[in-house]
């Protein structure tokens, strides 16, 4: 599904963030990408979303070279990826309902379908009583659950979570990771970038460990070992 092929990223003048990264993500996998801060996790995630281009090498999404895509072609790929970010990246001027509905509006669904689907997803993440609240009226945990709802509403092929628990307490972190596990159980691919040792060890899934921009370990049932 996603393939990194000898990817190197150097920020001018000479800061190397990723070096010769190669790995593949298969449909339905749950992968944790771990490493210290500055190891290159976020750059790697941003490359999948087409927000960064490799200095050399290629990143493929279902066979398409992401860095060669532009305009609507790139946006079509982004629609197939549900993103969850540490800073939530919510639309602050829209309500909880509207934030989730926006994804379906981008897809061109009609109001009847939107009004039927959005409440179901918000119920699944425990926000059905906050439909008309604005993101700033929610707690950190609620905002991240809203981000999860937004990421899954259009049934994307893959969910990418970049430090989704970075700003959350252990209880809310557990809730968000549980949601990701549930999503994976129904067959969706999940890529989780984190430096939370406890979460990774508890998951018992594939772990790719990054250190100074290089992959130092890639284990199918890995642990957080740095």
């Amino acid at each position: 599904m996603i393939k990194f092929q000898n990817v190197t990223k150097i920020y001018p003048p000479s800061t190397t963030v990723l070096q010769e990264i190669s790995f593949e993500v298969k449909d339905g996998e749950f992968i944790s990408i771990v490493g210290k801060s500055g190891a290159g996790k976020t750059t790697l995630i941003r490359m999948i979303l087409g927000l960064e281009t490799p200095t050399s090498g290629e990143v493929f999404f279902r066979g398409q070279n992401i860095s060669s895509l532009e305009g609507d072609y790139l946006q079509d790929v982004r629609k197939k990826i549900g993103g969850i970010h540490q800073d939530y990246r919510l639309l602050l001027n829209k309500t909880v309902f509207e934030n989730v509905a926006y994804i379906l509006e981008v897809e061109g669904l009609d109001d009847i379908e939107i009004n039927s689907q959005v409440p179901k997803v918000l119920e699944a993440v425990g926000l059905s009583d906050k439909l008309n609240n604005f993101p700033e009226q929610l707690s950190g945990g609620e905002q991240q659950r809203l981000a999860v709802a937004r990421a899954i509403i259009n049934h994307p092929d893959v969910i990418i979570a970049d430090e989704p628990t970075g700003n959350l307490d252990p209880y809310n972190s557990y809730e968000v990771i549980s949601l990701l596990e549930k999503i994976n159980k129904v067959g969706k691919t999940v890529i989780l970038a984190t430096h939370d040792k406890e979460i990774v060890n508890k998951l018992g899934k594939r772990v790719i460990t990054l250190e100074e921009g290089r992959i130092i370990r890639d284990e199918s049932k890995g642990r957080f070992l740095i």
Binding site: Q75, R78, L91, Y102, I103
Partner: peptide, 9 residues
């Protein structure tokens, strides 16, 4: 930026 990341044209 967020709108672009979620795939809006």
């Amino acid at each position: 930026n967020t709108m672009k990341i979620v795939g809006a044209s």
